[in-house]
Simulated assay, not measured.
Amino acid sequence: MSVAREIAAAKINLALHVRGKLPDGRHAIETIFAFCIDGDRLSAEPAAELTLGSSGLFSPELPHSEDNLVLKAARALQEAAGANSGAAILLEKRLPVASGIGGGSADAAAALRLLTSLWNIDPAHAERVAPALGSDVPACLLSLSARGEGAGDRLQQIALPEVSGMPVLLVNPRVQLSTAEVFARWDGIDHGPLGEDWRHGRNDLQPAAVQLAPQIETVLAWLSAQIGATLVRMSGSGATCFALFDSEVPRDRAAEAVPREWWHLATSLR
């Protein structure tokens, strides 16, 4: 029996500017998405019904399988494509839950790619159902560097040769943050557009996230003090922060020094 596999690549926001509110009540943002070569892992094989199993360090923190975004994505794809096939899906949860690096959105997107292949259906069905699953799901479905506008779901794929293959260290103080709660604490001030150079940008959600999880400031300060770190920011709505490095040696040295109580991942950008 054939088994299909997919990586749910960890997402980082190199910059994230909140510009206001959209007519539907969601927040208008401008962001630059980049993706790591590592993340959660999904596999699936043909089955009579749709089922989801899980393993991995963060598996116990997942919502009940019926509420998991992976199953919701699978059912939405099934309905959109008129597919009668099922699948036994296994999610290896290696990334922290509710951590600002894609998580559930990346898992849902990987499930769409996985089942598109397994069921041999038109990828356009996955593209159609992705936006309804969450604002980050279209970007995670692409899993390539892109500029996101609207709620983050209006995408323009961009080339970022300056970061392709760049070593990165992700660090999370093992704190879960609700995206909705972080956005609710946004100061409501438009601090200006995201220009052409994301390096001159910022993350407008950081102050709100720090109010809910002060440990973020500690992580950012620690990353900024690491030798070789060229840029340090919080990703998404937190609490994961990242540091970019020019080479693997200083990244790996920093990774070895991460306090034991924090989660970390030493990886590279696509």
Results as ranks from 00 to 15, higher is better:
residue 123 P to Y: 10
residue 209 A to V: 03
residue 67 D to E: 14
residue 59 S to G: 12
residue 188 G to R: 09
residue 63 P to Q: 04
residue 91 L to R: 09
residue 201 G to H: 11
residue 56 G to K: 09
residue 252 D to H: 11
residue 152 G to C: 03
residue 148 G to W: 14
residue 90 L to T: 14
residue 206 Q to N: 03
residue 133 L to H: 10
residue 141 L to I: 03
residue 21 K to L: 14
residue 2 S to H: 11
residue 247 S to V: 01
residue 200 H to C: 12
residue 76 A to C: 07
residue 184 A to S: 13
residue 149 E to Y: 01
residue 32 I to S: 00
residue 59 S to K: 09
residue 8 A to N: 13
residue 139 A to S: 14
residue 98 A to Y: 01
residue 33 F to E: 09
residue 43 S to P: 01
residue 161 P to M: 01
residue 146 A to V: 08
residue 88 A to N: 14
residue 51 T to V: 09
residue 180 A to P: 02
residue 175 V to Y: 04
residue 198 W to N: 02
residue 254 A to H: 12
residue 75 R to L: 13
residue 173 P to S: 11
residue 245 F to E: 04
residue 76 A to M: 01
residue 212 L to V: 12
residue 261 E to I: 04
residue 146 A to F: 02
residue 184 A to V: 00
residue 99 S to A: 15
residue 224 S to R: 14
residue 194 L to F: 03
residue 32 I to D: 00
residue 49 E to T: 14
residue 11 K to E: 07
residue 103 G to M: 03
residue 103 G to S: 00
residue 184 A to E: 07
residue 43 S to R: 15
residue 40 D to R: 00
residue 175 V to M: 05
residue 238 G to T: 12
residue 149 E to N: 11
residue 38 D to M: 06
residue 84 N to G: 14
residue 102 G to I: 01
residue 162 E to W: 10
residue 95 L to A: 04
residue 17 H to L: 13
residue 168 V to Y: 04
residue 144 L to Q: 15
residue 99 S to V: 04
residue 15 A to T: 13
residue 236 G to T: 07
residue 7 I to N: 05
residue 187 D to C: 07
residue 80 A to R: 13
residue 152 G to H: 04
residue 182 V to Y: 00
residue 204 D to W: 02
residue 191 H to Q: 15
residue 98 A to F: 10
residue 252 D to Q: 15
residue 5 R to V: 13
residue 147 R to A: 11
residue 164 S to I: 02
residue 252 D to R: 14
residue 135 S to D: 10
residue 256 E to I: 00
residue 214 P to W: 00
residue 18 V to D: 03
residue 84 N to F: 01
residue 117 S to M: 08
residue 62 L to T: 08
residue 190 D to K: 06
residue 192 G to V: 06
residue 266 A to R: 03
residue 187 D to G: 04
residue 52 L to E: 02
residue 177 L to W: 05
residue 258 V to M: 02
residue 234 M to Q: 10
residue 100 G to W: 06
residue 9 A to Q: 12
residue 90 L to M: 13
residue 135 S to W: 01
residue 56 G to S: 08
residue 208 A to D: 00
residue 129 V to W: 09
residue 54 S to N: 05
residue 105 S to T: 11
residue 109 A to M: 01
residue 202 R to L: 05
residue 227 I to C: 08
residue 122 D to Y: 08
residue 147 R to N: 03
residue 255 A to Y: 09
residue 181 E to F: 02
residue 31 T to P: 10
residue 196 E to R: 11
residue 13 N to H: 05
residue 60 P to G: 10
residue 135 S to V: 10
residue 147 R to V: 05
